[in-house]
Nucleic acid binder design. Sequence first.
DNA 1: GATGAAATCCGAGTCAC
DNA 2: GTGACTCGGATTTCATC
Lengths: 154, 154
Amino acid sequence: MTSELDRIDLKMLRLLQNNGRLSNAELAQLVDVSAATCHRRTQRLFEEGYIKSVRAMIEPLKVDRGALVMVGVVLDRSTPESFGAFEKAVAKLSFVLDCNLVAGDFDYFLKIRVRDMADFNRIHGTQLIALPGVRQTRTFFVMKEVVDNAPLNF
Amino acid sequence: MTSELDRIDLKMLRLLQNNGRLSNAELAQLVDVSAATCHRRTQRLFEEGYIKSVRAMIEPLKVDRGALVMVGVVLDRSTPESFGAFEKAVAKLSFVLDCNLVAGDFDYFLKIRVRDMADFNRIHGTQLIALPGVRQTRTFFVMKEVVDNAPLNF
DNA sequence: GATGAAATCCGAGTCAC
DNA sequence: GTGACTCGGATTTCATC
């Protein structure tokens, strides 16, 4: 079912990753195939899951979410149930952009976006340390975003 | 210039964030305005920088970038020059998705996507520790992606 | 299997109001 | 802000290889 990608497919993926608003006609020109072929191929890239979605990237500052915070989390116990409960709860928190189970000094790393530091402190005190099984958290305030969500290179 | 957003603009931003492929006609229906109005508003959201871009989200596994790694970096010296040199160099590394200057035990946190652990180890040895001013790095392999790049909530 | 040309249809973009 | 109009692109059909 999921067949291989040729160089045209790869080029389309890269172009769409950088500009999801490209019209089918434009894309067709850029990869040098007919509009019909381009349309069919694009559909396939969606159907077969190469493109998960197309999203507008919102400027955080413009919608009052200028503060970025990384949080390392250590759980009480390392049982499957603990991890499951934590993950289920964290997935519901709308301010959590990333949550990754990692190997090392922490169990999880969270990437969080909120209005400001005061907002984070409130959330930390009420929602983060209240997550199931949390033993301790370590907060890393982001002072400067050097690279944010760069496109995937492949 | 950058005027306020009303509830219609906010709704449009949220809808476009979740589905950047929405046609103007569809979006107009969803927010209950005419197509012409919707078109003008969308243009404004782009022009005034509320929407930075629209991007296709590629499935990393499908393009052989299944390994995610968080790396904490400590620099030798904390001078503006050190930071500048590091940031300039790191911005050129295509496998770096995020790079943030943080307050705490590390100077920077990197989010990196590569093919696999072997690939990371090679890159770590040749490209990461070779970055200007790096004293030490701490690697956190991601064992499970619980939440990845969730849409911004506002 | 794939493609591209042509035909149809519908939405983008612009106008007057 | 809306409604109408035009034009171009999206989508389908079909012949072809």
